[in-house]
Amino acid sequence: MNPDLLEKIEDFLEHRISKAELENYATENDVQDLDEKIAWFKDSILAIEADGMRNQLQDLFSKESIRIDPNINTTQKPALETLQNVHDGEDKTIVRKINSKQPIKWLMGIAATLLLFAVGSYLFSSLNQSDQNRYAEYEYIDPGLPITMSQSDNYELYDALTYYGEENYETAEAKLKKLHSNNPTNDTLSYYLGASQLYQGKTETAKTNFIKVEKNKNSVFNDKAEWLLLVCYLNENNSEKIKESLNKILAQKNHEFKERAEKLKSEL
């Protein structure tokens, strides 16, 4: 394979040229197994990245305690039930014990004093907070989907979600809006369009999009949309809707935000 063809394959993978342009450029021989060459190129780039990542992990954990922290409990199980027979041992949580040496007791005393002071200051300052700030801790910033760039026609979505991931919600919203107008029932588009709007303070339009996703019980974004809809109501101080949304979330046994919802309910 000549270097020029490699360059063109890379141009194609980076969406700088179309597949037709790539095929036009390739010789008759190259065209025959062009798809295989494209797949190889993509995999090779992944292999280079994987090799770099292996070094990154080695660097990260070389300073770690695999030498090994004797207090790590090695009997923790994964959450999935189907895996529970894979290895035996009791279901415990990893606990890192702190050595209870006498000399640190006085430090703990100082820490307790500082903590009391901090809690006092917090309580005092919170008296002056607006309701919106009061609920700030319930905001959820969705980091976005990891979309990889492929030769699919998803480039526009990739582009929009890249802006979203960079927290450039204004541009993300503009791009997602365009995509959404062509595909208004797509839950991914509705959800991220809503999120882009909410993070800019456009609660009203955000709600419309979250409600769409909320109605789609099969959507992977369903729980998140329900939570962010609740955040919209918190921002609006709409107590009736807050209560309604909270109850809806709390009624679902495995809701992703159930814990936060319980905490919020206890504070209302």
Partner: peptide
């Protein structure tokens, strides 16, 4: 979702989190 995104970005904080949570059972 944060973990998924973190792994995709090769984010050290995510790796550290997964290590803390799961190294015990992998040792086992």
């Amino acid at each position: 979702q944060e973990i998924y995104y973190g792994i995709a970005k090769k984010d050290n904080k995510t790796f550290q989190f997964l290590y803390n949570e799961h190294i015990g059972m992998i040792i086992s």
